[in-house]
Design a protein around this nucleic acid. Structure first.
Lengths: 336, 336
DNA sequence: TTGAAAGCGCTAACAT
DNA sequence: ATGTTAGCGCTTTCAA
């Protein structure tokens, strides 16, 4: 039933090599022969079998993407830019959504390897030994997107400078007269972005000679609910912070909702600053001031670097650091 | 460099068929031989090439998914459930994000076919002739997820009853004393869900003997910005509706923001009802009352039906209609 | 400018 | 219980 190159060859009265040539726009095909073959392809609704092609060419044009949670605003945006850039370059993406499940991640890595993907993009940085080991035996290129691999894994990454970004943000808060600055952070054990953003916060505080107040520091998993719960715990303290910096927009929105649900106002009672500058910043009121990551550029560059590596024009990139900036909206007020 | 089944066979001192047998957990392998082969596989870090396997088995375990916009709250949730259910059944998903671009859709359909996907899920229902034609010549199963194919395309679909859902919602508004009921709809030209939801709205109005007021009716593309703009146009009318029903949560949130930005209150001045009951309903304040689609079930059943068709246990399903219900939160008030 | 033939890595009869 | 062999549908030398 399924028609193959041989059927086309027969109908056009040529050999399969000739069909292959017109399929691949090869030279050395007489115009009339080419036309006849094209006609046969059309007549038969023939579509070449790229599995067979991949087998001989050892190239699938497949990119495996591993994301921690595609239903999240930051990841779904990034993924959509990755998809677009890949498709523009005639690559297809296979997605693995691991929801923080490292077994699932290892399994996906394995499956992607079996599927002979030409390369992988990892948007997740929790690691364990088996994953590290797997990655180090891998011969295809991998790039980390908005995540940094642990030192033992030698893969390029596309990122902003997380520590500097957090530092700059907190410094800005200080310049606005804030001294009671709460922090809702990400996981600092296994996640380098979590560590770096926290380090930036601490350093900015130290530079401004502000003592850190553990009452206003909490850590979560970047989700809205985490932000909500942590903010609630802040609200239970004796004294309130004048501003809270959350290292994801989702957590900042969670904090916002907690504040509003407790009949306080943003930014009149408490100011709020998020991180990522994802779409959600403009879906809430007040609109969220947020540290901007160039999401589109991050997604696109990850793909571009990966493709360059795949196609052998390895640029020897180790790490790409992109610009960040604070985008001011309505959730932050000056105390001056 | 890449190690294959032959290398394993040599190292284990057996034939490639034996290796193949242990790879596929075949019977008729002596325990000690099996162990030796497993050892060789481990020693060599061998991973079977599923491209080659697919070529002979004529089965890729790949599902192609076409979505209109994965950065949207409804689609990214649905996609994440699809991914989970597929992965649970050892299928991988290839995603094509078409952003309403029908050329891109046709191209993806073609590429998916070349890649020999075992089946496709389409979460989009705009059609044109070439796509219809392509779909009708396709011999692999396709299921429409939260979308209905046009009559000429004979594929199963998983849906709620959109017309009934809209009807029930509007009837409920009437029962709460509302008679000035605005409507923010989806595209009604090529999109059947758009048509059905609008039809449900009109019928409920007719049943309640309420005249339709075109001042309060607008159509958009299901996005937040559309909802915002349409709501703004309603606000410019002489009289305001007491409630507005938007056929996507994103549009409802857009409407909410427009209202808030214009210093009116929800639900005191205008009530709001959304559609989908996606995550965004709980990220805004007031929380959005919304017509619930069973997103998880829709995603999972789409995959299950598709896999059944792929694996030949065709259940002869034409259409699956799932239950809807209105989830009441804080954006709708009673006038009674 | 075209065709014949080898082979990509694997599975699945068929032999043994 | 194991090995031999013929493909799967294509690309790609190489020869004509």
């Amino acid at each position: 039933m399924p028609v193959n190159i041989k059927d086309v060859a027969e109908r056009a009265g040529v050999s399969i090599s000739t069909v292959s040539r017109v399929l691949n726009n090869g030279k050395y095909v007489k115009p009339e022969v080419r036309a006849a073959v094209k006609q046969a392809i059309e007549d038969l609704d023939f579509v070449p079998n790229s599995i067979a092609r991949s087998l001989v060419r050892k190239k699938t044009n497949l990119i495996g993407v591993i994301a921690s949670d595609i239903s999240t605003s930051f990841f779904s945006s990034t993924l959509s830019y990755i998809e677009e850039e890949a498709s523009r370059n005639r690559y297809n993406i296979l997605v693995g959504n691991i929801k923080e499940n490292l077994d699932k991640e290892l399994n996906y890595l394995q499956v992607f390897k079996e599927m002979q993907v030409d390369g992988m993009i990892i948007m997740h940085e929790m690691m364990n030994k088996p994953i590290e080991r797997f990655l180090s035996t891998l011969t295809i290129p991998v790039v980390f997107c908005s995540a940094k691999p642990s030192a033992s894994v030698n893969c390029p990454s596309v990122n902003i400078n997380d520590k500097q970004a957090a530092y700059d943000t907190v410094k800005h808060l200080v310049s606005l007269g804030h001294r009671n600055i709460g922090f809702i952070g990400g996981d600092t054990r296994e996640i380098s972005t979590g560590q770096h953003r926290y380090a930036g916060y601490l350093e900015a505080l130290a530079d401004a000679e502000i003592a850190v107040n553990p009452d206003w520091i909490g850590f979560g998993n970047l989700k809205m609910q985490d932000g909500y719960d942590i903010m609630c715990s802040f609200l239970a303290r004796e004294q309130l912070p004048s501003v809270v910096f959350a290292v994801s927009d989702d957590m900042a929105v969670g904090a916002l909702n907690c504040i509003v649900d407790n009949k306080l106002r943003v930014p009149e009672d408490i100011s709020l600053v998020g991180f990522d500058d994802s779409g959600i910043t403009e879906t809430v009121r007040p609109k969220l001031t947020s540290l901007h990551q160039p999401i589109q550029q991050i997604g696109e560059m990850s793909v571009d670097i990966l493709i360059k590596m795949i196609e052998g024009n390895a640029p020897g990139v180790k790490e790409i650091v992109l610009h960040h900036k604070l985008v001011e909206r309505d959730s932050l007020r000056s105390l001056l």
